[in-house]
Nucleic acid binder design. Structure first.
Lengths: 227, 227
DNA sequence: CGCGTGGTTATTGTATACAAAACGCTCCCG
DNA sequence: CGGGAGCGTTTTGTATACAATAACCACGCG
């Protein structure tokens, strides 16, 4: 995070997640350059990355908007993520070292601690959760798989501010992680895949509940994409 | 293809595919700016896209090289593509309009014509093949799926110059396409998925044969990736 | 003779000025 | 009253100059 474009990326991302801007709102490169304190050149580079991650979209005439995720978009994203991450879990089960499995157990202890504090600490939970999944993807040893998942995993965090997780949601998630570790320890790819599948599918429904029933969602028609 | 960065993208891509540069060779932005006739700014944008498509890679210190695809890289890529494109075939089977199915039949006639000329016209074959798969992905109606596949499908064409397809390879491919259309016409997602799976897996082995047995491949250790 | 060290060149990263394109407004005409 | 042409403003796209960083090479010291 030392080059200007990296700082710009982080700053813009934080700006989007802070909720200071609404979905569908237009942004300009100048604006973002001001906010981030660098010139438009690195801003344009950062914006490109955020477009890849689908946090920003461009209209047909190249104007820039904050992405708006409909319920269907979220389902699509989770479906793809499930497909890829189940594959990752399968491969990881055959490849994780003892040390990595121990690391996963440690991360999961941290995760459970975050859940059970007097009140759950959602930020800490999400951090631990992210690291947990990253270790698995790393162990899957498939660079392109990691690259594709990078695109998908980042996006829905935009919704986290809006979302209130119930403590029971978090506990179930922790149980999933425990079972995943058990599957890894048993070196059982099929088990790992199955657990990962249900884990992510449940996560989808947790998200979906927040955004409303199928068909509703906050669709604001930016007519994205030019191809 | 009207903006400078688009022209740069096309020119650089053509340059790579022409075989004028070898895998692992270093390129500089200035060089590419000269070749394409535009300044470095749009070149950098084009290069970014080509990095996404894995035709170019950067060393740990941001120097730019022509990507070198090992046999394992190719297998990984085909595995991911298979996973995603089987899913696309499944969805397409449930969504293709009569007109789209008719279009696929037409494309396939063109494809077979390209195979059977006095001598097979590989370029025409590949074009028709590409369009065929694009129609399916389009019909799958999942923008992010299309985006992810875009990354994967482009890459292996770098090898096409080296590869000599046997006429029998091409004929089998055409038969696969025919069966795919049959599965679509029958509105049978499982059938479509299965055919797509074997189609792509065979395609992988066709490619793999060209680059040599497992473990060999042309690996030249660019130590890509900075994460 | 090996190997670090300093300076030199090559290459990428950033800022800025300018060009092209898109938007929105007004005014005119039907 | 509606619609479209023209024009100023806003926004994105490109070129260029300069800054920062990495690679290269030669030299000197152990």
């Amino acid at each position: 995070m030392s080059r200007a474009s990296d700082r710009a990326y982080g700053a813009i991302r934080a700006h989007l997640l802070s909720g200071a801007v609404k979905a569908g709102e237009q942004l300009t490169e100048d604006q973002l350059a001001q906010i981030t304190g660098v010139s438009r050149t690195p801003v344009r580079e950062a914006v490109r990355r955020l477009e890849d991650e689908l946090l920003l979209v461009r209209s047909d005439t190249k104007r820039l908007f904050v992405a708006d995720w409909s319920r269907d978009d979220i389902e699509e994203m989770f479906t793809l993520r499930q497909m890829l991450e189940c594959h990752a879990a399968e491969r990881a089960a055959e490849r994780l070292s003892r040390e990595q499995i121990a690391a996963l157990e440690q991360i999961n202890r941290e995760l459970k601690a975050a859940v059970e504090l007097p009140a759950p600490d959602v930020a800490r939970f999400l951090d631990a959760n992210r690291v947990f999944h990253e270790v698995i993807i790393e162990a899957a040893d498939s660079p392109r798989l990691g690259q594709l998942l990078g695109r998908l995993v980042e996006a829905p965090v935009v919704l986290r501010t809006a979302r209130t997780y119930s403590q029971e949601d978090l506990r179930q998630s922790a149980r999933d992680h425990d079972e995943l570790v058990a599957a890894f320890a048993a070196r059982d790819p099929d088990w790992a895949r199955a657990v990962m599948g249900s884990h992510l599918r449940r996560a989808f429904h947790t998200f979906a509940r927040a955004v409303g029933p199928a068909g509703s969602g906050s669709t604001q028609e930016i007519d994205a994409k030019d191809a």
